[in-house]
């Protein structure tokens, strides 16, 4: 027992020093923010000397982790719904929209199903979309709702898989396993040597708003606010634009 106590004390002492030495913030970010946030994390580290750990996953997964007490400083969501739920539960401070994104259809470079336009989407016999719980999945349904019941039904009949985050949709199309998928423009740009983009007509498309907020119990609240400020700075906005995002 005595040994155990000593061991526990040693472990906690080591952990405490480690915490004091390395200042680090944890950023929970929607999967579609991968490239831009990895880039922004480096910029932030170079400027402030504070390390940024980016945890990327579907927004709904990140929200669930935060609801279950995951320790994080910043949350950037791919839709308002999940952020609003956290704001309502007072788990985050006031969210602000820092970027916009738009869903597009992607097909493999050689376009095996010969989908030439959004109207021909039902030609894709293997369509991969997001599950309705992940933002891209609910946007997909919203878009199809606006196209009319018949088209929606024809398209949904060809769904081969409902993936749990947008990057999995991209992966299935990049691998050539799916004839088409619906992802954000930014994801399409991240995989642009392997996929072709087909625009979704503006009158049926939705615009995804990306809100960001500092968590109410952020271990590094000041540094977290500085990271959020970087997103809104002209440098941050320039990098977001380079990744395919539109300004808020």
């Amino acid at each position: 027992m005595k040994k155990l106590v000593i061991a526990a004390l040693v472990v906690s002492a080591v952990a405490a020093t480690a915490r004091a030495e390395s200042r680090e913030i944890t950023v929970f970010a929607a999967a579609s923010l991968r490239e831009v946030f990895e880039d922004l994390a480096k910029t932030f580290e170079a400027k402030s000397g504070i390390k940024v750990r980016v945890n990327l996953a579907g927004s709904q997964e990140l929200r669930m982790q935060i609801e279950n007490g995951a320790s994080a400083d910043v949350f950037a969501s791919a839709d308002q719904k999940h952020m609003a739920a956290l704001a309502k539960a007072k788990l985050v401070a006031t969210p602000r929209v820092f970027a916009r994104n738009m869903p597009v259809v992607i097909v493999p470079k050689d376009n095996p199903a010969r989908v030439g336009s959004f109207a021909e989407l039902s030609r894709a016999k293997k369509l991969v979309v997001g599950v309705p719980e992940v933002p891209i999945g609910s946007y997909t349904l919203e878009i199809l709702d606006r196209t009319g019941a018949e088209f929606k039904q024809k398209v949904l009949a060809n769904v081969a898989s409902r993936e749990l985050n947008v990057r999995q949709v991209l992966a299935k199309v990049t691998l050539g396993e799916a004839d088409a998928g619906i992802v954000y423009r930014t994801d399409a740009m991240a995989g642009k040597d392997k996929v072709q983009i087909i625009e979704i007509p503006a009158k049926v498309n939705v615009i995804a708003e990306y809100p960001v907020a500092v968590l109410s119990n952020a271990p590094q609240a000041a540094a977290a606010r500085a990271f959020v400020d970087l997103l809104f700075s002209s440098d941050g906005q320039k990098r977001l634009a380079a990744g395919g995002f539109a300004a808020p």
Partner: peptide, 9 residues
Amino acid sequence: TLMFAGNLS
């Protein structure tokens, strides 16, 4: 399964 077969009810 998730990778090879996807996720469709």
